[in-house]
């Protein structure tokens, strides 16, 4: 059994997504290992962002099951039992199971604890860096209700909680080296900093699974290396599993434990970075040649 199949944090089963007549994702299944970095790669238009939007609740998939587990993965029979009940979530012996396709987007984030970033950065650009990180902790701060009297009257109990939230934000700002810009508007930051801030903002919500849509796009090599380090520290120090879409092969090969390759909405390969790199279908997809020409190319590039 492959490492990511032993205890997957997310099991994607037969996921399909149609937009009218266009089939953007077709019958895709894969596992995201707990505590691993999983990369989804593929040419433009392959359906990677669509898969992300299904996982994070922004699209309702046309078909398929997305089972996210806290604690430890349920057995297949437990999962099937939950699917049949029609409920979206269940508490298990080991933690909880969430069927993401049945949850509204904000519940995917708040209850199932899936965080995400966007292909085109979506920061609150008119708010400061610190405010961005506090908005991310909204759910933790509003447990007692949106209009909690303690917050309205600024009671000490509320002030303590807010101070803790600021403390968490500061920790993250130090990790992404932006503490000196805490009071600046997020929209004023350079592009690379905005990318890191968006990741920190998602992490402030304390997700168990972090989905990153092309985090290295537009970064220079130095920033890209810093990003790799950040992602590895998220995997190791924060015990958050990472699922990322990436074009930059140095990021994919350097940090991922597991790579899933999509092309035209279908999964064409799934394995360790080495396996995928040498897979003739992947080479064909990336170089855009017919399959029978692959061998010739393989010989040429020497794999």
């Amino acid at each position: 059994m492959r490492p990511w199949e032993q205890d997957p944090i997310l099991a994607v089963d037969r996921l399909s997504m149609r937009f009218g007549g266009l089939v953007a994702v077709s019958d895709v299944s894969f596992r995201v290992g707990r505590g691993q970095v999983t990369a989804v790669i593929g040419p433009n238009g392959a359906g990677k962002t669509t898969v992300f939007n299904c996982i994070t609740g922004f699209y309702k998939p046309s078909a398929g099951r997305l089972a996210l587990s806290h604690g430890a993965a349920p057995s297949p029979s437990e999962l099937d039992a939950l699917t049949r009940t029609g409920r979206a979530a269940a508490r298990t012996r080991k933690g909880g199971v969430f069927l993401l396709e049945r949850l509204p987007d904000h519940k995917v984030a708040s209850a199932a604890r899936v965080g995400r970033t966007f292909q085109n950065i979506r920061l609150f650009s008119g708010m400061t860096v610190l405010e961005n990180l506090l908005v991310a902790q909204h759910m933790g701060l509003t447990e007692t209700g949106l209009l909690s009297p303690a917050a309205l009257l600024n009671l000490p109990s509320w002030r303590r909680r807010e101070a803790a939230a600021v403390e968490r934000a500061k920790t993250w700002l130090e990790r992404i080296h932006l503490i000196h810009r805490a009071d600046d508007p997020a929209g004023d930051l350079p592009y690379g900093d905005q990318r890191r801030l968006e990741i920190a903002r998602a992490m402030c919500a304390q997700p168990v699974l972090l989905c990153l849509d092309e985090p290295a796009a537009g970064l220079n090599p130095r920033e890209s290396a810093a990003l790799n380090e950040l992602l590895l520290s998220i995997r190791d120090a924060d015990a958050t599993s990472v699922l990322l879409i990436e074009h930059d092969m140095s990021v994919v090969m350097g940090i991922s434990d597991h790579v899933v390759v999509l092309e035209y909405g279908r999964k064409i390969a799934d394995g360790t970075p080495e396996e995928v790199r040498t897979d003739p279908r992947v080479i064909a997809a990336y170089l855009g040649v017919e399959e029978d020409a692959v061998e010739a190319i393989e010989a040429e590039v020497g794999v």
Binding site: D105, H106, K107, A109, S110, G115, M139, A202, A205
Partner: peptide, 14 residues
């Protein structure tokens, strides 16, 4: 935050 970006808000669980 909602005024700034509603989609980002939803991704944060709001």
């Amino acid at each position: 935050a909602l005024r700034e970006d509603e989609i980002a808000c939803r991704s944060l669980g709001i």
